[in-house]
Design a binder for these strands. Structure first.
Lengths: 196, 196
DNA sequence: GTCTATATGGCGATAGAC
DNA sequence: GTCTATCGCCATATAGAC
């Protein structure tokens, strides 16, 4: 059984993910939830508050997934492989998340700090990891992480363009491409991580 | 000497780049151009038309830059190096472009086809290149191009988040990081392109 | 061509009955 | 808790004077 509050949050998630804060309409969220517009304000006071609740949920899930690659203490090559597989699966199941987060953090950068606090994450946690676990690697770990994220996220964020230019809008072919991509990224990164 | 029409387009470019189609306001564009709101409609009929003019300009510039790496017939490794240097310089000079394009192509995928026609580009041109120039490479060229783009673009598109998490919001440090990134990407790709 | 004033519609938010 | 009706504002767009 789902409460009205949950139905609203789920509907808001759908609409905000596709349209973003600026493009979303309270009326559309109400329709999606099968309730009246006034109820949205009864439960969440304002569009801003509702958006924050949605963003917090999405962002926390996303950054939790990312942090796993850093927090586990598996050997770094296995860790990388596991991350690529699970991260791409995760995005494929939530294909609107990357461009949503990219759009919203650029629209309102201040939201990041707010969400970090709510999620219980803090920047120091990430930074301190560089001083300990990774210090013996021959490459810069920040560049390494950013590369890994870019390689995984970009083909989803830029999908409409790439699918048009390189796949003649053949959506099924692009799904295959995304699936292949796991192996491509892993082999690329493994080669790069070799000690010579 | 700049005409009113040019002033409007320049102002619209600034505002749309930062706020996107949904977040931009005609009043703000008028203020930025130092003219009256009614003049916007005199020259561009509607917000949609004005947006299309702006998007077309930005998109054409962007995709022209990308296509150079494919169209020149320099050896592939030098080509890659040249592309990374010039492309990152280009984005650094226009840091809002990546997230703007990502946002708008996802908001309205149909705009891509429209812009492709206006710019004189067509998908077949890109696709045919794979059958000829690149056919002897040992790796998939589509994955290669997408990787290159992702490695260059992502640190700009996700800047607010990465800058917060890994650089404690130190903007100058992040600029250094972006500058270093050219060498990092090139060495990574070169290693990957080795024949063994 | 450029302005002021205004029409027109849609949006977030609230009042108040049930 | 949930609804209908409506307020007040702000956005795009247009009319019409200069």
């Amino acid at each position: 059984m789902t409460t009205t509050e949950q139905k609203i949050l789920e509907a808001a998630r759908q609409v905000f993910l596709k349209k973003g804060m600026d493009g979303a309409r309270m009326q559309e969220i109400a329709n999606e939830a099968g309730i009246n517009k006034a109820l949205l304000h009864y439960y969440y006071r304002s569009k801003d508050k509702l958006f924050e609740a949605v963003f917090n949920e999405i962002f926390t899930q996303f950054i939790t997934k990312i942090s796993l690659v850093l927090l586990s203490d598996a050997p770094v090559k296995e860790k990388m492989s596991l991350f690529v597989d699970s991260f791409i699966d995760k995005i494929a199941a939530n294909p609107f998340v990357p461009q949503f987060i990219i759009g919203e953090i650029n629209r309102d950068p201040a939201i990041i700090k707010k969400m970090m606090q709510k999620s219980g994450f803090n920047p120091d946690m990430f930074v301190s990891l560089f001083g300990t676990q990774f210090k013996n690697l021959h490459f810069d770990v920040r560049h390494f992480i950013v590369s890994l994220l870019g390689l995984c996220i970009f083909p989803f964020a830029a999908r409409p363009l790439i699918e048009n230019v390189y796949f003649n809008n053949n959506s099924e072919a692009y799904d295959v491409f995304l699936f292949e991509r796991k192996e491509y990224i892993k082999s690329m990164m493994l080669k790069f991580m070799e000690e010579e």
